[in-house]
Each structure stands twice: as C-alpha cells, then as structure tokens.
Design a protein around this nucleic acid. Structure first.
Lengths: 237, 237
DNA sequence: TGAAAACTGTGATGCGATTCACAGTTTTTT
DNA sequence: AAAAAACTGTGAATCGCATCACAGTTTTCA
C-alpha cells in the first residue's frame, strides 16, 4: 500500500507515524492502516489552526514546524500554555468527551500536521492498548513539565524564570553545532514574556544581563548561543 | 472474598475501588482481585508520605483526607503543586519508568490511602485496557487544570490569582449548606500564598478586600462563605 | 477550660517590575 | 538592494508587592 506524504519543509521523516513514539512497535500493516485514517494538512506561518472555545474532536500530530497554544487574558495579553514541535501530539482531551478546545492554536512557522478523527482513534486504542500506554506516558511527562513550569513561575526571582525558559527552549529546540550550542528561539521577546508572565521590556533587560554576564550570546534576534550552561541552570538558586 | 477496610474518619465509601472512577465498570470478582493487590496505609496530619527525589514506584489512591504535593524552592519557601482529596490518585509517573518522586507529599489532615505496586498495576493495565483509558482521561483533566492554574499565574493582576484559587478550592472542597456555600480551606494563608506564588501578607490583604467588598465572608480562619460567586469569577477581568 | 502555640491582620518602608515613550536594530517584503 | 514592517533596547517615573515588625486573634492540646 503506497501512502502519499505531504509536502513539508522541516520534516525529517516522511510519515507522521514514523515520527511519533505512540505508534512505535506497530507492524507495517497496522501502520498502513493508520495512514488510511489520517488527514494531512499544512498551514502557513501565522495561521490559526484552532480557536479557543471551538468544537474540536481530533487528535493532531505535528509533522513539521512549530505551534503555540495560548489563551487571551483579560488584560489583552496572551498566556502561552504550550509549544509544540515535530513529533508532539495534541487534542487528546477531545478524544474522551465532547469538549471545546481549551486554547487557540497558532502556527509559529509553516507547519504540517496529521489529524485523526475521534472515532477512528478510539477504535485504534481498543485494538492496540499499547498506544494508550504510550499516550499515558507522554501525558504524564507533559504534566511533569507543566509542574516544573508552574514551580518556576511561583519562584519569586524573575531571573530564574527567564533562565528556566531558556533552558527549556534549549532542551526542546537547541542543537550542538561545531561545538557551540545554539538555540533558535521559538518566540520573540514579547512571546517569551507572555509565556512566563512578564513584560517584553523585562525579558529584554534580563536577557541582556545574561549576555553581559557571559552566560549567553545573542546572534541576531532569534538565535542565542549558550556559553555557560551551568550558570543558566543555577542562576537564582 | 471478604476485604478488610481500613479505618478512616472522612471516608464516605468503604473501599478505595468504590471511590475511584478508574475502577468503575469492573466485575465484583475483578474488584476483589484488585483488593488483594492493595496495601492500605494511614498517616497522621503533618506526616510526610513521600520525599522529593525519593525512589517511588506505586500508584497511590486517596481514600480519605487531604494531601499536598510541594517542592522546596531555592529561597526557602514551598511551591505547592497539587492538592489531593478522596478519590484522587497520584504517582502515575512511577508506573512507566524508574523515576524518583517529583515532589514531597504531606498529609494536611489525617489520611487514609491505598497503594498498588508498579508490577501489579502494569499487569492490571494489560488485562483491563478500560482502566488505562480512564487514567488517560483523568490525566488529561489534570493537565487542563494545571493549564488554567498556569494561566492565572501568568495573568498579572494579583487580585485575579487570589480569586482564582478561591474558586478552585470552592469547586473541589466547597459544599452548599442551608443555602450558603461554604468552603473549608485546605491551606492556611501562608499555604495559599505558596500555592499561587505570593506572600502571606498579600494574600491576607487581598482576601480582606474581597471580604470588605462583600464577595466572601470569613468564618474563623479556615472557613469562608462565598457570597458573590459572580464577582469572584470576574474580578480582574 | 485555660494556657500555649499557631496563625492572621496591618502599618511603614524599600525595591524592583511595569509603564510609557522613542530611538535603534533586525527581519521581511517587493 | 531598498523600503517597510516588525522587533528590540533603554531611560525615567510610577505603582504595587515584598519585607519587617509586632499586635491581635484563633486554634490546638493538655
């Protein structure tokens, strides 16, 4: 059975299922069957995939690109809740109940995603309990991650919040290149501010300070190099 | 098969499994079998059930009482991450990998809990996929709840944070009584402060203000009555 | 029930993040 | 490659939360 792959600038793997750990360990036949259920979509940078409060009933797997999930707050800002990259999935809440989306989902870059309708996915779960264990594992990781974020938001030192989010980005989006560790920031300063509950100016100032202290080095607006990993992890402790 | 129930002041149901939705829909035989796997424990108020960083490999179900999960922060405070009450379960992270606990768990009241070792629970999951679906559902709810907490932490107005946590407590621990809606607060002022990343004094002042504005009424230190639900939900918006 | 312990309320003070405004820089677009 | 748009950096003033200190109150426990 031949399967058509969608066009995708940033995709390393050809198929969604190859990229997502929840589908590991399935036979080629099973894989092919899943592909039959999948709808492939692409979006341009800046497009909104889902609106906060909108009905939504699919599991979505990110094939390539980056997405942000946010809610608009009362004072006109955005509270960013999650960032998603290749291999991440979302919408699992929709799989158990008729709920509306808890956030707006926006493409930070051009993205390619695969979606599976609720019914099909439910059936899949019943046939392959291993998938549901994998999802369980992922959700539990996500929970842990959110707990850590929450912890660093509660910690009073603002320095630490900024450092923590940079470490976070580094782990998820960074890569070692010719001995240097570079991170392409998924958000601009205002986005970072909205992620950790500060203002744009404060983020700017704190990051400048980290740069002056030789902890990071900025390369344009979007890329930072991490010079002193230790200092970044410990700052504020 | 007869099963021994542990003594438990606050328990409404006799057995853990009757109280936890993840075991719904099992036959009496299955229920009895699960009881055979369960270890029953009680703890006194103030006792620590698990230490942050300690090895832990069991699923824990709260039978009666209240627990708080927290981590000590660098500046000597506690960041409270979760509150657990009857029917809640925790430790699901331990079921998938050899991890250490991500927090300290402390009894806020006398508590009774049931625990199931990892191996036994793993086997249970394989035999009863429905359980794993239920857990999936619960985790996804918890994730949503944490997202909301995060959102209200990011929102800059401190008023809103305090209101949000009171609504939170009301939903989880409140009850209507003779037309009045009363909440027995699970935490003292300092605990609330540690939950939402403020100081004790600020929480005091904000709550006093809510009281002056006729939104809530304090009845001693531990109990508040909610007078104006609307105002509480909207304050700051 | 009464004493001790724990918790809460409140004023004064200082620090630091926010706000506002605008210049400077980087990135995108054509 | 030039122009436009988006984003970043920074100073000055303000406002509000944290801190400190202690009195007042509630709760616990003997």
């Amino acid at each position: 059975m031949e399967v058509i792959a969608i066009h995708c600038d940033q995709c390393k793997e050809r198929y969604c299922t190859q990229q997502v750990s929840i589908f590991n360990g399935l036979t080629p036949e099973e894989n092919a069957k899943i592909h039959g259920l999948i709808q492939r979509l692409s979006f341009k940078k800046g497009e909104l995939l889902i609106l906060d409060g909108q009905a939504y009933d699919r599991l979505m797997i990110v094939h390539g690109g980056r997405l942000k999930a946010y809610r608009d707050t009362a004072d006109g800002k955005q509270q960013i809740l999650h960032l998603f990259g290749p291999g991440d999935f979302l919408g699992e809440r929709a799989l158990f109940a008729e709920t509306n989306s808890a956030y707006t989902l926006e493409a930070l870059t051009n993205v390619a995603v695969c979606t599976i309708p609720r019914e099909a996915f439910q059936a899949l779960l019943d046939e392959h309990p291993s998938i549901s264990k994998k999802i369980l594992e992922t959700l539990s990781d996500r929970l842990t991650h959110l707990e850590r974020t929450l912890e660093s938001m509660g910690a009073k030192t603002i320095e630490k919040r900024v450092s923590a989010v940079l470490v976070d980005f580094a782990e998820k989006f960074g890569k070692r290149e010719q001995g240097r560790f570079e991170v392409e920031l998924p958000l601009n300063r205002e986005g970072i501010a909205n992620y950790i509950g500060l203002t744009r100016e404060t983020v700017t100032r704190k990051m400048k300070r980290l740069e002056r202290d030789g902890v990071i080095r900025a390369n344009g607006n979007k890329i930072i190099e991490i010079l002193d990993w230790e200092a970044l992890q410990d700052s504020g402790e």
